[in-house]
Design a protein around this nucleic acid. Sequence first.
DNA 1: TCCTTTCGGTGAACCGATTCATTAATCACA
DNA 2: TGTGATTAATGAATCGGTTCACCGAAAGGA
Lengths: 352, 352
Amino acid sequence: MPHDEHKRVRLRDVAEKAGVSVGSASQAFGRPELVSEHVRRRVLDAADALGYPGPDPAARRLRLGRAGAIGLIFAERLGYAFTDPAQAPFLRGVASAMEEAPNGLLLLPDSRFREEAARTVREAAVDGFIVYSAPQNDPRVEAAIARRLPVVTVDQPRGAVTPFVGIDDRAGARSAAAHLRKLGHERVAVLTFTKALDPHGKLELDLSVERLGGYQEGLGEVWNPSLVRVCRPNAPEPARLATLELLGEPEPPTAILAMTDTLAVGALQAAAELGVSVPADLSVVGFDDSPVAEHTTPPLTTVAQPQEEKGWLAAQWLIEDIERGEGPRGRDRQTILPTELLVRESTASPRG
Amino acid sequence: MPHDEHKRVRLRDVAEKAGVSVGSASQAFGRPELVSEHVRRRVLDAADALGYPGPDPAARRLRLGRAGAIGLIFAERLGYAFTDPAQAPFLRGVASAMEEAPNGLLLLPDSRFREEAARTVREAAVDGFIVYSAPQNDPRVEAAIARRLPVVTVDQPRGAVTPFVGIDDRAGARSAAAHLRKLGHERVAVLTFTKALDPHGKLELDLSVERLGGYQEGLGEVWNPSLVRVCRPNAPEPARLATLELLGEPEPPTAILAMTDTLAVGALQAAAELGVSVPADLSVVGFDDSPVAEHTTPPLTTVAQPQEEKGWLAAQWLIEDIERGEGPRGRDRQTILPTELLVRESTASPRG
DNA sequence: TCCTTTCGGTGAACCGATTCATTAATCACA
DNA sequence: TGTGATTAATGAATCGGTTCACCGAAAGGA
């Protein structure tokens, strides 16, 4: 029967009830080998007689100076988090690096209320942050840096003032575009996504800038800005609509470069709806090689990037820096992992 | 230029440098209206002269008695988290309930190391837990309850000793099965997923038991246990393989009941691969009405459930209980939200 | 001029644990 | 029986803030 104990039970109360000092009581929980079996028993008994919930994490944290958690700052609002299946492997990588030390992962999503989100970051009980694909001038990122905790930045090579891991987005995009060019395509549309712009219009993500640049380089003289469509958020639906529109035009593109596989999926849906055959009438190239890419119809040609490795490395570095205990470092550690163009069945030479 | 201050800067240091008491320094940050403009300035200036990262969250938490975060305990390991697109709307619901108060969301995934995962829960700095679709005898759930913090359970109606929100899984599944029955199907396969079993083989999720029961009831005399396949984890790939196998048998099923849309997607992939036409040769019914369901080819007949509302309600209740500040409650609050069978184009009467 | 408010600042108590230098008790062995 | 070595328990200091009862000075009122 639950009594309505309104007061919380403190370690002190347990010690008193057990007739030992708080010191001993603490040991009984934290390092049992230091107390006699006898004391341990008494303490544990007292504890559950009183309904003691165990040492208060907040207090133990304060004393230990470790929060036991890592903050993950990412681009989307929570509701759209992980809508893109490409992010699952990244998480898997983070997870495997964290599995040894029992740490929690504190999600720090974007929010409609920018400043509130930053406040959450300022007040988050964490030992460090991973900034995943969020622009450097995001208030949350600034707040994270101001905390003077270790930070590792992912997918944001240019602006980072911290260690970072990423891929060569430009080269990857360029190879995708060059592939289409070589097949002979001359009307190539681009599906991109932009992050929400702040009032100053400056919240640009390196990632999208770089990929766009790569497309332009790879397409060379057939690059056509009027065929670029912004799809927001990064999900199939907006891409489907954009593609429907593109294919409805008098002179439709013969190929589409989608900045993510998720957008490519939308493009494929639109094509299927209109009875446009892929790749005979339309080639589609994605980016990421997300888990869905090989199961679309037809299987998607895409630029593979080592998501899982990115996640693993970022977490690994962060944990190292946390254990090193010397605060944040600069951008003295960096890795650019390679990408690879995977040619599957969604691309072919244009008709005629 | 960053000096290598190894010591952390404390509020005390700031106060000293500013020539005021720590009390005033604290106010300058926390409640500016209580100090004179003059003092506030001096403190803030001293703060950034010293590079003070702001009040230490751990300490402030301890004093305030609030962690400012909610723990989310969910079924999958972190790597597989949110692999199922059906979970995104749930998160969105949670997010919208949390948007007012700036709280963090601490992910408490399952782990290969069961006990480590439970430890993380025991030591998590949170004010309460949402248990999302995790079995009641999961060590993490037990740890959460032992913390004597508010807990809300989702999708686990039977075992819950806490408030819970869920749907009538059995009725939903029954309606799906009845639909197929009415169309005239007599060989109906079932794709299910089971949670990892613990050494005692008891980690059963109500959810899957209920849905399975519902299928059985709805199918009546055509229920055939030998056509039940376990697909693990809950992702398209295992379902694809299972379906490939089912369709390769001498007497293949004419319809498939998939326990989640994610599994249904795998079934559709397998059918497409084998050139089996849906719904002409094979009917497929999903569950969840996840965002992908209306975009599959063909659009998926499925049992819709109000994921977003579930998330919203769970978070709402939890926040209320936290603010009420009277510790955990029992299962005195509960809601079963309705499901609805959405008939799209993946089901039809069997041939002949 | 004296008394009462008002305003702003102070500093000690407290949040709930962990740690460690000390002290007390027990044991082994000569 | 005395001595040194172990082993176990103690309690005060500490982690880094927030809060609040109290106090002094300046302003307002009679």
